[in-house]
């Protein structure tokens, strides 16, 4: 049995969560949340914490030198720096649209890195 006290990052409310786990590490109960999202976060955070990673990728021939990108969904927290390394090496040619895939299955996480802003080509 263990208790974990967390602050939910699901939304700006920042609920104070209490997550109880049993001896195998499995979550028994989440309290203090005010929505389902909070319970999910609590469960995940003590077993396999994940985060969305946002950064930028260089653009060739664009009106702007870089395009903001994000992981489409969360990736495991311990893969953040590996993901960043891949993002640093990546590049994409203009024009770029929102949602364009910049990196498939980044670092084997099963999650794509996608563009989060449109960058038109330079005239």
């Amino acid at each position: 049995m263990a208790e974990h006290e967390l602050t939910c990052i699901g939304c700006p409310l920042g609920c104070a969560l209490r997550v109880e786990t049993d001896d195998t590490g499995a979550v028994v109960r989440v309290t203090g949340n005010t929505c389902k999202r909070g319970e999910d976060y609590g469960r995940r955070e003590v077993t396999c914490p994940t985060r969305t990673v946002t950064s930028t990728v260089r653009v060739a021939g664009g009106k702007e030198p870089v395009v903001p990108v994000r992981t489409r969904t969360d990736i495991p927290k311990d893969r953040i720096f590996a993901c960043m390394e891949a993002v640093r090496q990546a590049h994409i040619a203009a024009p770029v649209s929102i949602g364009d895939v910049v990196l498939h299955n980044v670092c084997g996480t099963g999650v794509d890195v996608i563009a989060s802003k449109a960058v038109p080509a330079r005239e």
């Binding site: 260089r58 653009v59 060739a60 664009g62 030198p65 870089v66 040619a93």
Partner: peptide, 8 residues
């Protein structure tokens, strides 16, 4: 410079 324009 952490992200230069991609120079072909």
């Amino acid at each position: 410079q952490i992200r230069g324009e991609d120079k072909p």
